[in-house]
Write a protein that binds this DNA or RNA. Structure first.
Lengths: 405, 405
DNA sequence: ACCATTTTTTCCGAGGCTTGGAAAAAGTCT
DNA sequence: AGACTTTTTCCAAGCCTCGGAAAAAATGGT
């Protein structure tokens, strides 16, 4: 019925603890005084909150032996205590399951990759595979258990973070992951779409602070993540921001999703490949990075068919971005995937597409930021998402810890 | 630097007062007990806050002489005190300037319409015209002054709510409105795009509570408003959600904005008219509602050219919605403008368009809610926006009022 | 070495807002 | 008129944060 709920002292406490943790995530190491300046809290409050978090074991005081430059009592350095918790970011993709485990400070502890044909797996076996991967990761670190797990999935996921609706990596539909995996691992599990999760990787990076932007993956598929009004966008029904399936051309090229004219049907690896090689069917298997690399080299060397394929891909991406810009606003783009490696071939066409499809050509000069390692980006994003969830939980539960002291 | 700011008792007080005001806006009249139940506040707190707001003159106790049905002490009815403030919603459109003044309870007090050719006006004269309109409205009500004014504009407005970037109603660009009009009227002024403002009209309507939806205006232009994650979307750079200028067809029909293939170039009055009459130029003058009505009747009577014109309009709208749905999520649509009157001609094509352009045809069954009176919708929206701003201001300043008592 | 200076941290009382329970108020029902 | 029920008010208590004072920990100068 009513939309606005009350607030009380509890909320204030939770919010302010979160503000302190958030500041620490941004700067890595700080002092009570600096916390006070960054958050606007009084030094007394900053000191009190830091003390509580220290007693909870979330923070630790560092023994810094560097002689201070300035006069006066040097501030005691505070940092997130890595040992306070462990999180895992797992990734389900075509033909592989990968994962990274990190400590509470965000430091990676171990990474693992399993190349397996998972296409035929049902829910039970997929969960078992993920659990086994998590166990193997834990074993490498010698640590006992996990506190939070994020599963990033190629494909559409449920908006309640419970599992997979559909994935190109799997034949089965509607696979429940979160609940059974959570039971196995004894940790909270969230399942999200890999592309829409990507902006989380920049959550605490100072150069992206307060900035709205989009992440764009161009590869075997085309996907987008949106950071808007300071929050990573999540749809109500599905993982959303299906940029690859925004229609580019009515009744256009055939897309994997069954529709015609999607951006993906022009800009994904398979679309570029089939356009360059003269077909119009969807290849049964994934086009390898090596093949795409050769195709790009051919285009650079003057192969007309290849050049046109990349150009049309760029136009489709550009029109898609222009449409997004018209709706939302021009945004900087973080670009990753095989498209990032072929940016020299794509960029002019992308900018042409934006210019032709947005009012006054707005956004045609939006900056592109290239990220080479897509896997690392997804791990960073999943880890950040997991840590943010933990911070929230810890800020809430620190109430009990206060009494324990 | 840091994103999360501190919270303290002041914030709690402001937030909770706002919760009480918000509840009152939703239900109209309430009691202290009901406030407590709706907000989650204790009855003591609810009573204390109500008392403060009463002393501030924002609320009033009603003498309800109806005999209570239930046993026990009857709750004393509380309602927003209309006399606490006055707000105006002004509207700038092609060939007219209109306005409505309302009291703090949201009751309309007067409406006025000036049909004038404003196309050649510069900033000063436009501000003077608006000020004169506001003064005339005030005079009708016999009230002294305004507390908040919202100006809804056809066209693009600055995201800082300061004025107009460009409007089809005006020849001049970049007209500053808020600051000079505010100085004249002695009230805070906000300038917003009419279409993106529309969702505000439903801010406190119970059937839209907590619901994300879009408002779609189809008429002389095509515009959209977006309520998303509980907030009315506002772009960072411009008024945004330029649905009418989302590209429908690369290199397609010529649009007023200079681009080719915009949704507006297929779905607006002028687009439908020129398609039906066989031209491809943009008519110099606005197509009247009467002409559009006749065109619709012709289509219903079997005129093939007219039928196709409406069908192509529907397809363009449908593809546009499908693209939005693919990005965000399927949303209910509140439809208004001449397009709402021709919904019988448009709807099948719109749904076809959505089906062909969204993954799995998702959203093809999204509900359409028709609103006949577009002017009233904009006034409702402007008034709600103004009242929400006042509530926020009052909740903040009630601090001083506490001491005054 | 020693003391003044500077800066950070801790400690303590005060103030503000909400809470929960008790008391008061204002009706209905028998 | 008295019992009962429900709403409202009143008051002590609990949690935060804030501001200032005191303590702590380093540097710089003599």
């Amino acid at each position: 019925m009513s939309r606005l709920a009350k607030t009380d002292a509890d909320m204030v406490r939770v919010h302010n603890r979160l503000a302190v943790l958030d500041h620490l995530r941004r700067v890595g190491t700080t002092t009570r005084k600096l916390v006070s300046e960054a958050t606007g809290l009084s030094v007394s409050a900053s000191s009190a909150i830091s003390g509580t978090l220290l007693r909870c074991g979330l923070l630790e005081e560092l023994e810094d032996d560097e002689r201070s430059i300035r006069r006066g009592r040097p501030g005691k350095s505070l940092a997130l205590c890595g040992g306070a918790a462990r999180v895992a970011a797992l990734k389900i993709a075509v033909g592989e399951v990968t994962g990274r485990i990190s400590d509470y400070a965000g430091r990676p502890l171990a990474e693992l990759r399993r190349e397996v044909d998972i296409s035929g797996e049902d829910g039970d076996r997929l969960v078992a595979l993920l659990a086994e991967l998590a166990a193997a990761l834990l074993e490498r670190t010698g640590l006992p258990d996990l506190d939070k797990v994020v599963v990033a999935v190629q494909g559409k996921t449920h908006s309640d973070l419970s599992g997979i609706v559909w994935s190109p990596a799997l034949k089965h539909w509607n696979i429940e992951i979160a609940a059974p995996l959570s039971q196995r691992l004894g940790a909270d599990v969230s399942v999200l779409n890999d592309c829409s999760l990507m902006p989380e990787a920049f959550r605490w990076r100072p150069e992206f602070s307060g900035l709205d932007f989009a992440t764009l993956f161009v590869g075997f598929g085309v996907g987008m993540g949106l950071k808007i009004n300071g929050a990573t966008f999540q749809g109500k029904h599905s993982s959303a921001v299906e940029f690859g399936h925004i229609n580019h051309m009515p009744h256009g090229a055939l897309c994997r999703c069954g529709n015609r004219g999607c951006v993906e049907a022009y800009a994904s690896d398979y679309a570029i490949w089939r356009r360059a090689t003269g077909g119009d069917a969807i290849p049964a298997h994934r086009i390898s990075d090596a093949v795409m690399q050769r195709l790009a080299d051919a285009a650079r060397a003057g192969d007309e068919a290849a050049r046109i394929a990349f150009e049309e891909a760029g136009i489709a991406i550009g029109y898609g971005l222009g449409r997004v810009y018209t709706m939302i606003d021009p945004l900087p783009i973080v670009l990753t995937g095989s498209g990032a490696r072929a940016i020299d071939l794509l960029e002019p066409a992308i900018r042409t597409g934006i210019r032709e499809s947005s009012v006054d050509g707005l956004g045609a000069d939006a900056p592109f930021i290239l990220v080479e390692d897509t896997d690392a980006l997804v791990f960073d994003a999943g880890t950040a998402h997991a840590l943010a969830a933990l911070d929230q939980a810890f800020a809430r539960s620190a109430a009990e810890a206060t009494e324990a002291a």
